[in-house]
């Protein structure tokens, strides 16, 4: 992190303080941003944008959380950051939501930032929707009457959460939350298969290049095949994304039905 980045974060903390954001929240935010800059190698201005604008966004978020006293994480609350691909995300969100993990947001590198207060954990459920950015607010407003709140987005993928108490009341409390340690990255079989297919494709291309690098017709064929394969992959992922949107299917006692992490 450069001296300019340090000045950026110092000035950011000063502005947040002036906006009335609690000191503990400012410390956490600045520490997270500093860690992120150390990992990304980018400058603060490149990564977060103009200081005044960024401070305004964070200040507004701090003000909102200040109006809801018990949503502020307890000092003893556990925090867990994790990520998963689109084939596992909804299933895992609901599995760990059942253990009391509440996703607060997604960080800038696409990880779910989840918190749990072990002394008063309650079950959460999650859903995923594919929503164009311009429709994100409309989508949140449509789902709000059912108790859903936005808890993160990544491109056109938006995630929503709600306490299971919306459906089952006090039965949604988690009396004995299971303890960690918990993994930080989940890859589905589908994604692993796609990675293998991709690697094999590149390996074949490399062999062909070594055997016959001057055959123009073959390279045109390979390029056309690559484009068709790419389009097929994009369509496949889009279709997969649209599956498992909507609310999870649950039994009367609030337990997830088999394959009920979302409806097709």
């Amino acid at each position: 992190m450069t001296g300019t980045d340090h000045d950026y974060l110092t000035d950011l903390a000063r502005r947040l303080r002036a906006s009335g954001v609690p000191e503990q929240q400012i410390d956490t935010t600045v520490r997270e941003l500093s860690d992120h800059l150390d990992h990304s190698g980018a400058t603060a201005e490149e990564e977060f944008g103009p200081l005044a604008e960024f401070a305004g966004q964070l200040g507004a978020r701090g003000e909102r959380s200040g109006s809801a006293p018990e949503t502020a994480p307890d000092a003893d609350a556990e925090e867990w950051r994790w990520s998963a691909d689109i084939y596992l995300d909804v299933e895992l969100l609901n599995r760990y939501g059942d253990q009391g993990w509440e996703v607060d947001r997604m960080d800038r590198i696409g990880r779910f930032v989840a918190r749990r207060d072990r002394d008063r954990a309650m079950r959460w459920e999650y859903r995923r929707e594919v929503v164009p950015r311009r429709r994100r607010n409309d989508s949140a407003a449509e789902l709000a009457p059912e108790g859903w709140e936005p808890c993160g987005h990544w491109g056109h993928i938006a995630y929503y959460k709600r306490p299971l108490s919306v459906l089952v009341g006090p039965d949604a409390e988690v009396t004995e939350p299971p303890s960690g340690p918990l993994p930080r990255f989940f890859l589905s079989r589908q994604t692993k298969n796609m990675m293998v297919v991709g690697l094999v494709g590149w390996a074949i291309l490399a062999v062909l290049y070594l055997l016959n690098r001057t055959d123009t017709g073959m390279w045109i064929g390979a390029a056309v095949g690559g484009v068709i394969g790419g389009i097929a992959a994009v369509i496949g992922v889009r279709n997969d994304l649209r599956k498992r949107t909507g609310a999870p299917r649950r039994a009367a006692d609030g337990s997830l039905e088999e394959g009920g992490a979302g409806s097709a």
Binding site: S67, A68, E70, T71, M122, E149, P163, V166, G169, P170
Partner: peptide, 18 residues
Amino acid sequence: LGQIRGGTLYPVLNRLET
């Protein structure tokens, strides 16, 4: 009174119900 989020409201409703 500001936006009361589900993580705040439902524990209160649960306590009142219990």
